[in-house]
Design a binder for these strands. Structure first.
Lengths: 145, 145
DNA sequence: GTGATTGCAAATTATTTGCAATCTT
DNA sequence: AAGATTGCAAATAATTTGCAATCAC
């Protein structure tokens, strides 16, 4: 339970980047953080509407854009996804995309993090990061079959 | 230069999947293959229009969809891309996405292919594949700076 | 007070769909 | 001949933009 800590981080990071701390932004960030998953702008909009019915979908898009640009949130896409998804989890991690239902699961693995990137590639492209997408079947789909 | 071989493969794979071999599909496949890169439906449409001016963008979308469903082409997306990209290169490979210009480069590397996926994950998710996205700076952008 | 942000509506971009005419087999 | 595919136009979905009113600092 580190909700409060993350909200404080959100406020601080906004200030540090000259972004204003508005109730909408805090609500959006908090809701995304609480949901603990990957949400599309539309999904997130539907959730925050419960708390602030007059909030606009455009506001959600704009908030996610600025959050993403200052790395307060991470963005995920997948081949069959029609929209982008966001999460407040910005630690280095990987994704498993379910072949059957397209669900995205976060994967943490020190073993995967030790990726053996060839020196030649690192130099050639000035590699600064990487992420791995695994293809498999999520637990939900496994238990349904 | 294995253009012809690939076209034959296209014809055979279409037949094998009960897809009709139309001039549009061959043109689209051939152009994508010749371009030797990642093209969006729109980009590909602009290219094939040169040869068949009355071809429709919807036809390109439909052709890419069926090609993708029978694995005649691969699909690529990236976080900042507004559209999907396609390539006829369906061998297992990875992608480097340029931080600066968003260009996508194919990366072949036996060393990367030997990914050490934890046994526990493989079982848990019935992992059937993976791909790695590297973040770096493409050669063009390196030489421009 | 000043400039950033919001909410709304309209615009844009990417993709999909319905359907009659036309091809492939 | 039968069924799939094409081209077109319209529809849908995702995202962005312009702008006046409002809010944060």
């Amino acid at each position: 339970m580190h909700t409060k800590k993350q909200i404080v981080e959100c406020i601080e990071k906004c200030r540090a980047h000259g972004l204003k701390v508005t109730p909408q932004r805090l609500l959006i960030y908090n809701e995304l953080q609480t949901s603990n998953g990957h949400l599309s702008p539309e999904q997130l909009y539907n959730r925050v509407k419960e708390y602030q019915p007059n909030i606009s979908l455009a506001t959600v898009y704009k908030a996610l854009d600025v959050f993403y640009s200052v790395r307060l949130v991470a963005k995920v896409t997948c081949l069959e996804c029609t929209s982008a998804y966001y999460e407040t989890n910005i630690e280095h991690h990987h994704h498993l995309i379910c072949k059957l239902c397209q669900a995205i699961d976060d994967i943490y693995s020190d073993q995967l993090d030790i990726l053996n990137i060839p020196e030649s590639l690192i130099k050639e492209y000035q590699i600064s990061g990487f992420s791995i997408q695994l293809e498999g079947i999520c637990k939900k789909c496994q238990s349904t079959k």
